[in-house]
Simulated scan of single mutants.
Amino acid sequence: MTVYSKIIGTGSYLPPQRVTNDELAAQLASKGIETSDEWIFTRSGISARHYALPEQNASDLAIAAASAALEMAGKRPDEIDMVIVASSTPDCHGSFPSTACIVQQKLGMNNHSAAFDVSAVCSGFVYAVSVADAFIKAGNHKNVLVIGAEVFSRILDFQDRTTCVLFGDGAGAVVLTASNEPGVLSTKLHADGSHADILSIPGKLAGGAVAGSGYLHMDGQAVFKLAVSVLEKVATEALDAAQLTPLDVDWLIPHQANIRIMKSTAKKLGLPEEKMVVTVDQHGNTSAASIPLALDAAVRDGRIKPGQNVLMEGVGGGFTWGAILARM
């Protein structure tokens, strides 16, 4: 009997501090940085983003999203036998203990389930779901909680208007379970380390402090060009692996980084924009959280229905990219 991994619950969380483009522009103007709502929106499609409160870490956003996903799935925390957190902004700067272990503790899970983080930046959720899918199909785990959680506001240089206006904070989560019904139909992952410098935090830990810059650095034009090049290809690979075509796709959920990249991908795949879930306008780029945030929004408002095919894809620093085709 074929075993599939199936998404049975979704959840999301946005911190309460919502910042519009006009509000951000006013804050930047006080620092001598000029920008505007028009400048931001025409280049990215972003109108607003959310920032975590000072006392909120990635794990706090993660457990809020996870709790909503667990409730939809009808699962207790102690029924989860693996927790995977995708994040580039973990609770601990040295990356341990993992944010997944902290989430496990905060959810009150005492069943010694496996817990670990995945670092693939904006592709992190796609990578994490692919890992969960493999463990479930291998028969090693039954219920896996996958979370994308980010507090990118902590790593933004607010003297650099080309990056600080693009990112926001948030978390999204899914519960995958072993099923006899088709769920995750295919996954495809790629990376090219030769492009590591175009999107990175170049600082390193040395002597208990950060040596070099601890802020996000991005070559926007290079990222844009590479993203447009690889997203259509990896989406086609995922469709081919499932022996499906773009005509079989009910919804496209790209990483919510830039509306121009998203529209370009949909056009190359021959998908109408009406089939694309868009949250970048209100969330900004939330990195590993962006796909599950958009997925949960479309599930909860009724757009995504059981039995529909959802194509999810993303690109991120590393340089990483990947796609998932899932039947809901």
Rank of each mutant, 00 (worst) to 15 (best):
G316K: 00
M109D: 04
H190G: 09
S44H: 05
A149L: 11
P97G: 04
T2Q: 08
M276I: 11
P292A: 03
T286Q: 11
A173S: 08
V121S: 10
A257V: 07
G168M: 06
H195I: 12
V131E: 00
A298D: 07
I147L: 07
P292L: 07
A66P: 09
Y13L: 04
G148M: 02
A227F: 12
A86F: 11
L239M: 07
K31M: 14
L252I: 07
R43I: 05
E71L: 13
T320K: 01
H283M: 13
A149C: 04
T320I: 11
A288F: 09
I136C: 04
T35C: 03
H255T: 02
G32Q: 12
K268C: 11
Q104S: 10
A128Q: 01
G183C: 05
P272K: 12
L24D: 07
E79L: 05
G11L: 07
I291N: 01
S30I: 07
A25N: 01
W251G: 03
P246Q: 05
N180H: 15
I198F: 10
F158W: 13
C92W: 11
D240W: 03
D60R: 04
T265F: 08
F116E: 11
I136N: 02
L293Y: 11
V121H: 05
S287M: 14
E232N: 14
K31N: 13
A171E: 01
D81G: 01
A86E: 10
M72C: 09
A68K: 14
A26D: 09
E55V: 12
H255R: 01
A288H: 02
Q221Y: 13
G124W: 10
S30E: 15
S179F: 12
D160V: 10
A227V: 12
D197G: 15
L166Y: 02
M109P: 05
D281A: 14
K305N: 13
F152M: 15
V210L: 14
L156D: 06
E55W: 13
D169S: 03
K268L: 15
Y13D: 03
G74V: 08
H217E: 15
L28E: 06
G172N: 07
S123M: 13
K275T: 06
L24F: 03
M82A: 12
L61T: 07
T89N: 05
N110T: 15
G317M: 02
E34N: 15
I259L: 14
T245I: 08
K106S: 11
D22L: 02
P16Y: 10
Q282C: 09
L216R: 08
K75S: 09
A120W: 00
H141G: 00
G208Y: 13
T20A: 06
T35Q: 00
T245V: 10
E55N: 12
N111S: 07
G168K: 04
A191Q: 13
T245H: 00
A209G: 12
F116H: 03
S47G: 11
I40P: 00
L226E: 15
L70T: 06
E38F: 03
D192G: 08
D219S: 12
A132R: 08
T163H: 00
A115M: 05
K75Q: 14
A58R: 05
A132L: 10
